[in-house]
Simulated scan of single mutants.
Amino acid sequence: MKRFAIVVGTAVLGLSALTACGGGNDKPAAASNNAASSQTKLATADVGNLGKVVVDGTGRTLYVFDNDTSDPSKSNCDGGCAAMWPPVLAGSGTPQLAGVDASLVGTVTRTDGSKQLTLAGSPVYEFAKDGKAGEAKGQAVGGTWWVVGADGKKITTDTSSDSGAGYGY
């Protein structure tokens, strides 16, 4: 009986250590949250003076990256870039859309094997420094990050005073 208790105690400690380490998941929190939902939601909203832009299901502004390609679709934002610019993951099933043309929505396989949503072929992202719905702090960052309109095209209005130097990747 004592040996059984030692084995069980060791197993519990081992599992606790693995849980505390997070299992090696290096994905940004926002991307992980998107993956946890079974269905991704895209909508449009008026954001600042940028007009109608695409947002996720929580109202967070979505962006495209000039260093990505749309034909063929390819994401070039991994590692530290993806930590600052979490990719919008596809989840399972067909995305729920409000104000976004379904023919513009697709997916691309990222280098880690996950599926990222695309609009008009361009992979879409959130910006980690946008803390709430309606913010667009990532607009024009590094001269390469842009909010995306309902038509799938980037909106290049520069609303920032410092263009977010250091986060452009």
Results as ranks from 00 to 15, higher is better:
residue 3 R to H: 11
residue 137 K to F: 13
residue 133 A to H: 07
residue 121 G to D: 02
residue 33 N to T: 13
residue 71 D to E: 11
residue 56 D to E: 08
residue 55 V to R: 05
residue 125 Y to S: 03
residue 28 P to Y: 10
residue 9 G to D: 06
residue 3 R to V: 09
residue 155 I to E: 08
residue 103 S to F: 01
residue 160 S to K: 15
residue 77 C to F: 13
residue 166 G to Q: 10
residue 8 V to A: 15
residue 82 A to W: 06
residue 25 N to Y: 09
residue 112 D to V: 08
residue 83 A to F: 09
residue 156 T to I: 13
residue 129 K to L: 14
residue 163 S to T: 12
residue 27 K to M: 10
residue 152 G to A: 10
residue 59 G to I: 11
residue 126 E to D: 09
residue 80 G to T: 12
residue 151 D to P: 02
residue 147 V to H: 05
residue 49 N to T: 14
residue 35 A to K: 13
residue 169 Y to S: 09
residue 79 G to V: 07
residue 58 T to N: 14
residue 125 Y to Q: 07
residue 93 G to N: 11
residue 127 F to V: 05
residue 45 A to S: 14
residue 83 A to E: 12
residue 85 W to F: 10
residue 50 L to C: 02
residue 135 E to Y: 12
residue 27 K to G: 05
residue 144 T to F: 14
residue 14 G to L: 14
residue 21 C to D: 11
residue 47 V to P: 00
residue 129 K to V: 07
residue 36 A to N: 12
residue 138 G to K: 05
residue 136 A to F: 06
residue 114 S to A: 13
residue 59 G to V: 13
residue 128 A to V: 15
residue 21 C to S: 09
residue 63 Y to R: 05
residue 128 A to G: 08
residue 160 S to Y: 05
residue 74 K to Q: 12
residue 92 S to E: 14
residue 1 M to I: 08
residue 60 R to C: 01
residue 10 T to V: 15
residue 149 G to R: 10
residue 148 V to P: 00
residue 33 N to I: 08
residue 11 A to P: 03
residue 67 N to H: 15
residue 29 A to R: 13
residue 92 S to K: 14
residue 17 A to K: 07
residue 137 K to G: 12
residue 108 V to K: 01
residue 72 P to H: 11
residue 82 A to P: 04
residue 5 A to D: 03
residue 167 Y to C: 08
residue 36 A to D: 09
residue 142 G to R: 12
residue 140 A to N: 15
residue 29 A to D: 10
residue 61 T to V: 05
residue 43 A to K: 10
